[in-house]
């Protein structure tokens, strides 16, 4: 990693961006900075304004107010070649050959004509689609079309990659294959922003996250900093037996039962090894405990807590990177 990131322009930065559709305020005063070379998780529930924000980043939509900058330049049609975009709603020309579709989008993304053919070939082979190159798009399975769509996003080798709900509709094998490609792209220093409503996915891949809800930022920063700030307030317990007992253990504020395991949120006084030992001692005679771990809360939990905190009028502490 390079040092002195602060001196460099951000890959993407938004400054008080707003966008309304009639009476609906989809995005309200959103500011965020995506550092160069980061894997940035753009998170929020469905309908929180993620896709609208992303569409403003790629200049499909124009903000009503505020400013979008891409690598320091004001957003607009001229920065489109800097960004590879995989929209949530995928689409390819069904009647065109696979190779021709990718070649078309490559040319549209200003890939030099001399390089188009070889690049398309390389990518198709890399994702095991070499044999399908001369087939029509509509002969391919849905998963294959998703991979083609991914190739379309990366074919021009853009420094910034924006993926909207990229894993939706992918089976685990394909999702894994594409995740490996993403890690590879990160190693090459690309900036990757992806939106998702699945917190655990972001938790695995991202180094930065931004949580939004109802078009406004709730929380952002480095993932490790956010989790550190939240403290080790969660006790994860794997057990067999009557889970109703969990609620009665000393120092347990809340229980989230996930079936195979449960996460107990501890009161501030109970977040010590001694207190945890007391909880385990309380449960052990009545439950068969197969494992337990004191850990930072999940991103999902942090998100829920933060929104609840805003609702209760509490000050939200955001953990910005220095």
């Amino acid at each position: 990693m390079m040092t002195g990131l602060a001196a460099m322009p951000f890959a993407i930065s938004l400054d008080s961006v707003t966008k309304s559709y009639g009476a609906v305020r989809a995005v309200r005063g959103l500011s965020l900075q995506v550092p160069e070379g980061s894997v940035y998780g753009f998170l929020g529930p469905n309908g929180s304004g993620k896709t609208t924000t992303i569409r403003m980043m790629v200049h499909i939509l124009v903000p009503d107010g505020g400013e979008v900058r891409i690598q320091g330049q004001p957003g607009g049609d001229h920065v489109k070649d800097l960004i590879g975009y995989l929209p949530e709603e995928r689409g390819l020309y069904p009647k065109m050959k696979v190779r021709e579709v990718i070649e078309f989008f490559a040319a549209l993304k200003s890939v030099p004509a001399a390089q188009v053919r070889s690049r398309v070939k390389t990518w198709l082979e890399r994702l095991d689609l070499g044999a399908w190159s001369e087939k029509q798009v509509n002969e391919l399975s849905k998963g294959m079309q998703q991979k083609i769509q991914f190739i379309v996003a990366v074919i021009a080798d853009p420094p910034i990659l924006i993926l909207d709900e990229f894993s939706s509709g992918l089976d685990p094998i394909n999702a894994n294959e594409l995740k490996d490609v993403l890690l590879d792209l990160r190693a090459q220093g690309k900036t990757i922003l992806f939106s998702t409503h699945r917190m655990e996915e972001a938790e695995r891949l991202c180094d930065h996250v931004c949580l939004i809800d109802h078009g406004a930022k709730v929380l952002d920063g480095r993932l490790d900093a956010i989790r550190a700030a939240a403290g080790t307030s969660t006790l994860r317990i794997e057990s067999r037996g009557d889970r109703a007992l969990l609620r009665q253990a000393p120092g347990v504020a809340e229980v989230a039962d996930f079936g195979n395991y449960a996460e107990l949120r501890l009161t501030p006084e109970a977040q010590t090894p001694a207190a945890v030992a007391a909880i385990v001692r309380f449960l052990a005679p009545q439950l068969e405990i197969t494992g337990f771990q004191l850990q930072a809360p999940s991103l999902n939990q942090i998100f829920i807590d933060t929104i609840a905190g805003i609702g209760a009028g509490t000050e939200v502490s955001t953990a910005h990177q220095s």
């Binding site: 489109k80 709603e89 020309y93």
Partner: peptide
């Protein structure tokens, strides 16, 4: 057709 097949969003990300 491009609207219904959802190609337009990919196109607009590449060209004005």
């Amino acid at each position: 057709e491009e609207k219904t097949s959802r190609i337009s969003e990919v196109l607009l990300a590449a060209v004005d």
